[in-house]
Design a protein around this nucleic acid. Structure first.
Length: 463
RNA sequence: GGCCCCUUCAUCUAGCGGUCCAGGAUGCAAGGUUUUCAUCCUUGUCACAGGGGUUCGAGUCCCCUAGGGGUCACCA
C-alpha cells in the first residue's frame, strides 16, 4: 500500500508550487489505490493562522483533490512529540543544551569570521557538570559524528551527505515546543507514509530526519525531491509571473483542470502527450519519471490549456462559472448561441465575460482608432441606410437571416462588405473585431440593433 | 563562502550508446479560412552550455570548466 501526504505550513495561501507537489502526491496515491493524507504543520505557534489553513483547504476543494481522513494538525500532537523527546533523553540519544541564543549567535559570528561553516560545537553533548543558572535548555539530538548519511532519492539518485554536515540539531525549543525536522519524521512514520514527494528545498532536511528515524527505530519511506518551479525569467517564482496564490487563478478565470494539466506537465511528461484528464494522470503518473531539473512557469502554455478546456466544457457549466464574473446566462434565452460563440474564442472566463458583456450591453463609448478607420467617407450615410433597411425588413430571427440582409444590402449598394461591416461593428460593440455580425444582431434583436446604430449616428452628429 | 543538486529549441519536454543531419507542444513568423478580430488548418523558425576523455560509435557514460538553483535558524 502506498501512502502519501501533503504537509503545508499555514503561513499564507496555497502556492502554485505547493499545489504541484500536492498533485504529485495525490496522483501517486490514487494510482496505487493507496491513501493521500493532509497534515497541517503548525508547530510554530507564532506564525500560523486559521485563515491560512482555511485558504489551503479551499484551494484543494476548488481543484477537486480529495484527501483521505481528516487533516492532521501538529499542534494537536504536542504531547505525543513530548513523549518521544523524553524517550530519546532517557536513552541518551538526545541531551539538554544550555547554550543561550546569544552565545550561539556569538559562536556563529566567530566561525563565519574564520570562514568556517557555522555550526554547533557539541559542547553539551556529553556534559555532566552542573548546568548554568537561569537558562532554559533546548533539547538536541545526537547526530552521527563520523561517516556518511546515504539515502536513495527517487528523482536524483543516491544522495551522500557527510555526517559532519549535520549538526546535533535542536528538536525542542527552550519553551518545550518541538521543531520541524523532529515532528516531520515522527508524523510521517506514525501516519504510515511510504512515499514522501516534496520540494527539493527539503533535500537537506532529509539527513536530519533520517537521524530522527534511526534514533526512534522507524522504517524509512521512499523520498522524491522534486525541483522547484522557476519564474519566467528563470528566477524564483514571484508575483510578476502571473500569480502565486492558487485561488488567484480562479479569480482570473482559469479552469481547475487546466491548472492541474499545466502543473502536471511541469517536470513530468508521458511521451508527447500534452492533454491529460485527471483519470489519465492517475493512470500514468509515476514520480520516478519526474525530471531532475527545475522548470519555468510559462503563462502562454497555461492560457492555451485553459482555452482548450473552455472549448470542451458544456455550456451549462460555463454559464454557472460565469456567474462569478457577473454574467448570468443560466436561464437566458440566448445562452447556447452566446456560449457556443465565445467558448471558441476566449482563453479565460474573465475574457469571456468581458466579451459577452460587449454584446449584451449597449456600448458606452467607442474606440477612437476604430472610429477613425470605420467612419471615414460616407460611412455614416451607409449605416443610416442600413438601419432603414432593417426597419423595412419583416421579422428577422436567425443569424443567417441577418447575414442575408447584409448581403442584399451590399449587392444593392454595390459596395464591399467592409463598407458596412466596419461601421456596423463599431455601432454594435464599440470596436472593430469581435464575432460574426449576423450572430450579434440575432442575439440582440432587430430593435436593439437599430438603437445601437442610431446611438452611434447621434454620437457622430454631436461632435 | 562550504556542501549538495541541476544544464536538449525562447519556454515545457521526448530521447534511457547506433532507428536523431534530434521528435512533440506552446510561442513566434508566413500563408489559407473569415466582412473584422479570435478560433481553426497548413508551412516555417529555433536546441544537445563549453572543453576533454571512454567507445567502432555519445544528446545519451566519466572528468573538468562555466552558468543556474538549493541549503547552511530555538522557520517550516
Amino acid at each position: 500500500m502506498i501512502v502519501t501526504r501533503f504537509a503545508p505550513s499555514p503561513t499564507g495561501f496555497l502556492h502554485i508550487g505547493g499545489l504541484r507537489t500536492a498533485l504529485f502526491n495525490y496522483l501517486w496515491a490514487r494510482r496505487n489505490g493507496g491513501e493521500f493524507k493532509l497534515r497541517i504543520e503548525d508547530t510554530d505557534l507564532s506564525r500560523n493562522s486559521a485563515e491560512a489553513t482555511k485558504a489551503i483547504l479551499e484551494a484543494f476543494e476548488w481543484v477537486g483533490m480529495d484527501y483521505d481522513g481528516d487533516p492532521v494538525y501538529q499542534s494537536d500532537r504536542f504531547d505525543l512529540y513530548k513523549s518521544y523527546i523524553i524517550k530519546l533523553l532517557d536513552e541518551g540519544k538526545a541531551y539538554k543544551c544550555y547554550m543561550s541564543k546569544e552565545e550561539l549567535d556569538k559562536l556563529r559570528e566567530e566561525q563565519m569570521a574564520r570562514k568556517e561553516r557555522p555550526r554547533y560545537d557539541g559542547r553539551y553533548r556529553d556534559f555532566t557538570g552542573t548546568p548554568p543558572e537561569g537558562v532554559e535548555p533546548v533539547i538536541r539530538i545526537k547526530a552521527p559524528r563520523h561517516g556518511e548519511i546515504v539515502f536513495e532519492d527517487g528523482i536524483k539518485g543516491t544522495i551522500v551527505i557527510k555526517a559532519d554536515e549535520v549538526d546535533d540539531f535542536i528538536i525542542a525549543r527552550s519553551d518545550g515546543t518541538p521543531t520541524y525536522n523532529f515532528v516531520v519524521a515522527i508524523d510521517d512514520a506514525l501516519m504510515g507514509i511510504t512515499d514522501v514527494i516534496r520540494g527539493d528545498d527539503h533535500l537537506y532536511n532529509t539527513p536530519k530526519q533520517i537521524v530522527v528515524y534511526e534514533a526512534l527505530g522507524f522504517k524509512l519511506p521512499r523520498f522524491y525531491h522534486v525541483p522547484m518551479i522557476l519564474g519566467e525569467g528563470g528566477k524564483k517564482l514571484s508575483k510578476r509571473d502571473g500569480a502565486a496564490d492558487v485561488m488567484d487563478y480562479k479569480r482570473m478565470g482559469y479552469l481547475p483542470e487546466a491548472l492541474l494539466n499545466f502543473l502536471v506537465r511541469l517536470g513530468w511528461s508521458h511521451g508527447d502527450q500534452e492533454i491529460f484528464s485527471k483519470e489519465e494522470m492517475i493512470e500514468l503518473f509515476d514520480p520516478s519519471d519526474i525530471n531532475a531539473s527545475a522548470s519555468q512557469y510559462n503563462l502562454d502554455k497555461l492560457l492555451w490549456l485553459n482555452s482548450h478546456y473552455i472549448k470542451n466544457s458544456p455550456n451549462e457549466r460555463l454559464a454557472t462559472l460565469l456567474e462569478d464574473f457577473g454574467i448570468y446566462l443560466l436561464s437566458h434565452d440566448k445562452r447556447e448561441i452566446l456560449l457556443d460563440i465565445f467558448k471558441e474564442r476566449c482563453k479565460t472566463l474573465a475574457e469571456m465575460a468581458e466579451q459577452i458583456k460587449e454584446v449584451l450591453e449597449t456600448p458606452e463609448a467607442y474606440d477612437e482608432k476604430a472610429m477613425k478607420r470605420a467612419m471615414k467617407g460616407d460611412a455614416a450615410e451607409i449605416l443610416s441606410d442600413f438601419a432603414q433597411m432593417l426597419k423595412d425588413a419583416k421579422e428577422l430571427h436567425l443569424p443567417v437571416e441577418y447575414h442575408k440582409l447584409m448581403e442584399d444590402f451590399v449587392a444593392q449598394k454595390e459596395i464591399g462588405f467592409g463598407k458596412i461591416g466596419m461601421p456596423l461593428r463599431l455601432a454594435l460593440i464599440g470596436r472593430l473585431g469581435g464575432p460574426d455580425l449576423g450572430d450579434v444582431m440575432s442575439i440582440i434583436g432587430k430593435e436593439e440593433t437599430i438603437a445601437r446604430i442610431e446611438k452611434l449616428l447621434g454620437f457622430i452628429a454631436d461632435r
